[in-house]
């Protein structure tokens, strides 16, 4: 009995990101912010970001508690969407959520996710998909408002 298969999910980069997450804290005077909560495990994350007049994400940060997957995912999500337009960020969110659900995407699309694409194996751990998608759901909520919630349920 060993934990070899676990390395599919907990790749080095995920554990490194989880142990040393990027873009933590709060943006001062954010234009957008949201709280997300995973009631099944108690993970709570708070996201803030600043959009400029062209709707570009100029700054983004998160704070809160969570497992390695949710911390790494939040860290990687914030890194990849920083500097992107709202539209591009939402597109990335869609690619990520499709990937997590095991839907096919072109390699080109997956590349757009940057480091976050290492979570592709999350679909082999169905109980943990929510941990990975929580911060992307937060991104949708933060950029589009809470109306989008239903779509994510």
């Amino acid at each position: 009995m060993n934990l070899d298969r676990l390395k599919l999910l907990y790749k080095d980069i995920i554990l490194e990101q989880a142990n040393n997450p990027q873009n933590t804290g709060r943006i001062r005077n954010p234009t957008n912010e949201t709280n997300v909560y995973n009631p099944s495990c108690g993970d709570k994350l708070h996201f803030t970001c600043t959009l400029d007049k062209n709707k570009k994400i100029t700054a983004i940060a998160f704070e809160g508690e969570g497992c390695s997957i949710s911390q790494a995912s939040a860290s990687m999500m914030t890194q990849v969407v920083k500097g992107k337009s709202t539209k591009q960020a939402i597109e990335l969110s869609k690619i990520f959520s499709d990937m997590a659900m095991g839907k096919k995407h072109s390699q080109e699309d997956l590349e757009k996710l940057g480091d976050a694409q290492v979570l592709i194996n999350i679909m082999q751990f169905p109980a943990r998909i929510k941990c990975a998608t929580l911060s992307w759901w937060a991104l949708d909520r933060m950029l589009l408002g809470e109306k989008r919630d239903k779509k994510n349920d």
């Binding site: 934990l3 907990y10 099944s40 495990c41 497992c67 109980a127």
Partner: peptide, 22 residues
């Protein structure tokens, strides 16, 4: 330093079914 959900996923790999959460 290890979140309960990460622990439970690791345990599950080893066939050990426990509950993690509140």
């Amino acid at each position: 330093g290890i979140h309960p959900h990460d622990v439970a996923t690791a345990f599950d790999e080893l066939g050990v079914e426990v509950r993690a959460g509140h």
